[in-house]
Each structure stands twice: as structure tokens, then as C-alpha cells.
């Protein structure tokens, strides 16, 4: 069965690019453009992996991460934070909220694929 990846990202060009990339690798990709939708889609579609941006309209990515990780229904889904903010504190914050990994933007596409493979096999 195809692995499902949920991209929570508000910049359409970025999310589309990521989706194209991942689809070409054989993954199923879903997109949510804000945190609220992201959480809904997680609950309804049950992705195998979430790629989460931090700078989102409304709820911030950190909040989303916290929410998902504290909800037992969703807590086991691995979350990779993909964000422009690459400062130490942001990474630490993300990890402390339960994120499994952190990839700063702009990222090396090969690196992204590597990480995805790591969590999805």
C-alpha cells in the first residue's frame, strides 16, 4: 500500500513542489494550508508521516505539533518540521514538543527524500 504523507504548508509553490517530488518517488501526498485543516486531515486521513511548516496562518506549526502529539489518536504519526527558522532554539522547541526531526528551508531535496525514507521505510 502506498504510504501517505501529509504536507502542512501555506506557501502553495513550496507545497506543490514537495508534493510533486514525493509523488514521483511513489508516495501519496495530501496538502493542508493551515494548522486547523492539517489537524482535521490528520484525524480523517491518518497519514503515515507529516511534514509540518511552522509559519502558518492562525495556529502556528508548533501548536499543531503539540496538539497532534498529545492526542493519542495521532501521537504515533512521525512529524518532520520543515521550516525557514533554523535557529537552535527553534529546533529545540520543536523537538521538545515531540517533533521527530527538523529540516530547515530551503532544503536540499535529496536530504528531504532521505528523511522521508527514514521514517517511512
Amino acid at each position: 500500500m502506498k504510504k501517505r504523507i501529509l504536507i502542512i504548508e501555506d506557501h502553495p509553490e513550496t507545497s506543490e513542489m514537495m508534493a510533486r517530488m514525493l509523488e514521483l518517488e511513489g508516495y501519496e501526498v495530501l496538502i493542508a494550508s493551515d494548522g486547523k485543516m492539517g489537524i482535521e486531515k490528520t484525524l480523517s486521513e491518518k497519514p503515515n508521516l507529516i511534514l509540518l511548516d511552522v509559519m502558518l496562518p492562525g495556529m502556528s506549526g508548533f501548536e499543531v505539533c503539540e496538539k497532534l502529539k498529545s492526542d493519542p489518536k495521532t501521537s504515533q504519526i512521525p512529524i518532520i518540521i520543515v521550516s525557514i527558522r533554523a535557529a537552535e532554539e527553534s529546533i529545540r522547541k520543536g523537538k521538545s514538543l515531540g517533533a521527530n526531526d527538523y529540516l530547515p528551508k530551503p532544503f536540499d531535496p535529496a536530504k528531504l527524500l532521505e528523511l522521508v525514507k527514514k521514517y517511512l521505510g
Binding site: H11, E13, T14, M17, M18, R20, K105, P106, F107, D108
Partner: peptide, 10 residues
């Protein structure tokens, strides 16, 4: 940085 991401990606 935002535009750079899709640039790199594509």
C-alpha cells in the same frame, strides 16, 4: 528564503 525552496526543489 521562501521562494528559494521551490526554486531548489524544481
Amino acid at each position: 528564503r521562501t521562494p528559494l525552496t521551490p526554486i531548489k526543489g524544481y
